[in-house]
């Protein structure tokens, strides 16, 4: 396939988008080619969402779009016009961690922490559909998230702990 980079001056074509991110509405001009993850990190300063690969495989960039998990590196910012995005930075309320964040903390479900934002966002999506998952089901539900430190065992424990804490209604008593 022919590749023709730098055809035009940067900034010649901009699109105006209205998007709600972590509960705040924004109106911004973006280049159509801007990936959602770059809009979040560079334009909004929400660096909690990270890029871990160039091939749409690792899931580190996972956010929620209208309540469902998506890879923000595989979405254009313009595609979110009129929609609602939640990132890892929008999970805690009044300084109180989300039960899934708490469970990751308490179960030592991170080593370097690079995959963690994506793992947590995907885990929240997953337990919405499956509130009392088996080991096998958690592993399958996190199929799109890679941990280069390979700390999967504790991640599975954390997801199950958060799921049962939520089911028991014990506000985050994930243990």
């Amino acid at each position: 396939m022919s590749v023709k980079p730098w055809r035009r001056r940067v900034g010649e074509f901009m699109s105006r988008i209205s998007v709600t991110v972590d509960g705040v509405s924004y109106q911004d001009d973006v280049e159509p080619r801007t990936l959602l993850v770059h809009y979040l990190r560079e334009q909004l300063g929400k660096t909690g969402t990270v890029v871990g690969c160039d091939t749409s495989n690792c899931g580190a960039c996972t956010v929620h779009l209208d309540g469902r998990s998506v890879k923000s590196c595989s979405l254009l910012a313009v595609q979110t016009d009129g929609h609602e995005v939640t990132t890892i930075e929008g999970l805690s309320t009044d300084g109180e961690l989300h039960p899934m964040q708490k469970a990751f903390h308490e179960n030592h479900a991170l080593q370097c922490g690079f995959c963690t934002p994506g793992m947590i966002m995907q885990s929240i999506d997953f337990v919405q559909d499956n509130p009392s998952p088996s080991d096998e089901e958690v592993r399958h539900g996190l199929e799109g998230n890679l941990c280069r430190c390979t700390g999967y065992q504790n991640i599975v424990k954390a997801v199950q702990a958060a799921a049962s804490a939520t089911a028991a209604g014990t506000e985050g008593g994930a243990r």
Partner: peptide, 10 residues
């Protein structure tokens, strides 16, 4: 990487 520039229509 980011894609090359393009016109976008929706």
């Amino acid at each position: 990487m980011i894609p090359t520039e393009f016109d976008y229509h929706a």
